[in-house]
Simulated assay, not measured.
Amino acid sequence: MDAIQKRFDATGKNGLPEAYLLGFSTEGDGRAIIANGNPDTADHQAVYVPGTESDLGNIEGGINRMVNVWHEADAKSDGKSVSTITWLGYDAPDSVWKDAPFPNYAYDGAPAFNHFLDGLEASHSGDSEPHRTVIAHSYGSTLVGAAAQTGHLNADDVIFAGSPGVRVSGADEMDVPKGHVWNEEADGDPVPDIGRWGHGGDRFIIPSDQEFGANQMTTDTEGHSGYWDETSYGPSRSLLNQALVVVGKGDNVPLKPPPDPWAHPTPGRM
């Protein structure tokens, strides 16, 4: 609660827009949904789904990530309004080793996520239809995949970061237009290859695999948690790429070259 209040107190500082508390509960591990900027009127909406070990007690990290996305997206939006949302609306796995290998957390949370996206659509009062991006980190991507697999994912773009697998084996199963699934895998991130055997769909394929069909965005961060980092010289490339997709400028995102077919492949990858 102190972290949420801290975000409210930051309104107006460094251009940060008003915050909106869209959902809150202290039951179980807790729930919280916090927006930067009014999603009902925003031209561009981005909804972030965090992963394993996320709960109300550490919501500040998720809030700060979407603050960073808001700043970079707003700077590239050509004057259009942006709202970025931290969606902790599900019971995330508590342990990487004991809980994250199982899909029930994803499937249990998927209906609530789909309902939330539908609610954003229904409540929007802007002059034109919003452009909506889903950003999912780690096990959050598994939930998003389950949401697309079991219902309608009401989104225009999907960004995965450090994904252990999304329950389906191809971008064409993500319920968004062709070419609008994006992926980031940073150097030194162990989660994608570890997770493929549990969440890689019926062919053990994850979004980082070429055959999945996602746009492989370049990254300049390291490890599993740095995709939203600022650096000493400004925002990281990993963060900037997400912001470009959020404001509908995915064509400007630099992509990784296809892998060398003569290199020794990792099992399940090309």
Rank of each mutant, 00 (worst) to 15 (best):
M1N: 13
A3N: 15
Q5I: 11
R7S: 11
R7Y: 13
R7N: 13
F8M: 13
F8T: 03
F8K: 11
D9W: 09
K13W: 08
G15E: 10
E18D: 15
L22H: 11
G23N: 03
S25N: 04
S25T: 04
T26S: 09
R31M: 06
R31G: 07
A32F: 14
N36P: 01
D43N: 11
H44D: 08
P50V: 01
T52H: 06
D55P: 00
L56P: 08
I63K: 02
N64M: 13
N68P: 02
V69Q: 04
W70P: 00
H71K: 15
H71L: 08
A73P: 01
A75W: 02
A75H: 01
K76H: 12
S77H: 00
S81K: 02
S81W: 00
V82N: 02
T84F: 02
I85A: 03
G89Y: 12
A92I: 01
A92R: 06
P93F: 06
K98L: 14
F102H: 15
P103A: 12
P103T: 13
N104W: 08
Y105L: 05
A106D: 07
D108P: 06
D108M: 05
P111L: 09
F113R: 01
L117I: 11
D118P: 04
D118H: 12
L120N: 04
A122K: 13
D127C: 00
H131T: 14
H131Q: 12
A136M: 08
H137A: 00
T142H: 07
L143P: 11
L143Y: 04
V144M: 01
V144W: 00
A146P: 06
A147Y: 10
Q149Y: 09
H152Y: 14
A155F: 06
A155V: 01
D156I: 06
D157I: 03
F160M: 12
S163Q: 05
R167D: 13
V168H: 03
S169M: 11
G170N: 10
D172Q: 07
E173M: 12
K178A: 15
G179V: 08
H180Q: 15
E184H: 14
E185G: 11
G188F: 11
G188S: 09
P192E: 06
R196N: 07
H199Q: 01
G200L: 04
G201H: 07
G201I: 05
D202A: 12
F204P: 00
I205E: 14
S208G: 15
D209R: 05
F212A: 10
F212V: 02
N215T: 01
N215A: 10
M217P: 03
T221N: 01
T221F: 10
E222G: 08
H224K: 01
G226H: 00
G226D: 05
G226P: 01
Y227S: 09
E230Q: 14
E230I: 02
T231R: 14
L239C: 03
L239G: 09
Q242T: 14
L244V: 04
V245M: 04
V246I: 07
V246H: 04
D251E: 09
V253M: 05
K256P: 03
D260P: 01
A263Q: 05
R269H: 15
R269S: 13
